[in-house]
């Protein structure tokens, strides 16, 4: 609809919207996270949902214990190699549409524990991440910012056309292969479908 007409109508007390806006508005204001903490960052996540920061203002205070009822996975903390298959399995159990926030340096890249033999160097190796939050641990404000970023992202999704989100594309995968425990490392060490080491050009 034409913007001018819409504002004219709203002056007259008639509110118009599109189905797409309504749909996304509803989705973005009730993102239910999975109650799922891995390490230190999870404590900041809990702090963010408590009275002082009050995540409820963003419609996301309902931490669901079951992945079947959640829309958002906050990977809050270090993903170890022993835990990675479970994280992927939990993601697979979530219904579409689903989003992932990687909270903290560890979930992004291994963070301070990067050099550990049992630490996964970033959850992007197995899962598609929507928002990354740097920090160790990120403050609750940073988590709120990530929420708002995610909400904006949801709000801007077109429901038709080539740019439509993954859950509306019938042939797009909604489950990812779960890595297996090997003798020395996880097998495979990364999911090549969604993660390739980006080209880094480095001068000597």
């Amino acid at each position: 609809m034409d913007e001018g007409l819409r504002s004219e109508l709203s002056k007259q007390g008639v509110f118009t919207t599109t189905l797409e806006d309504l749909y996304n508005w509803g989705r973005k204001n009730s993102v239910w996270p999975l109650g799922f903490g891995l390490a230190c960052c999870a404590i900041e996540m809990i702090a963010a949902s408590m009275a002082r920061w009050d995540l409820a203002r963003f419609g996301a205070e309902v931490f669901r214990p079951s992945p079947r009822q959640a829309d958002l996975m906050i990977v809050a903390g270090t993903v170890t190699k022993k835990m990675a298959p479970q994280v992927v399995r939990l993601y697979n159990q979530m219904p579409e549409p689903k989003y992932v926030i990687a909270m903290g340096a560890c979930a992004i890249s291994g963070g301070p524990f990067k050099q550990g033999y049992n630490v996964l160097k970033g959850i992007d190796r197995y899962l598609p991440v929507d928002v990354h939050i740097p920090g160790c641990p990120p403050r609750p404000e940073a988590l709120l910012h990530a929420f708002m970023t995610l909400q904006r992202k949801i709000d801007e999704q077109a429901l038709t056309g080539a740019q439509r989100p993954r859950h509306l594309v019938a042939e797009a995968p909604s489950e990812f292969p779960v890595p297996e425990f090997g003798a020395h490392d996880l097998v495979p060490p990364a999911n090549p479908e969604i993660w390739q080491p980006p080209e880094v050009v480095r001068g000597e």
């Binding site: 390490a39 270090t78 170890t80 022993k82 524990f113 550990g116």
Partner: peptide, 21 residues
């Protein structure tokens, strides 16, 4: 072991002060 982050191994590969964080 689901959060075994190899603290001790990393501690043996950093300086004394480096382990403080």
């Amino acid at each position: 072991g689901y959060l075994h982050r190899n603290h001790e191994k990393i501690g043996e590969n950093t300086t004394y002060l480096g382990s403080m964080p």
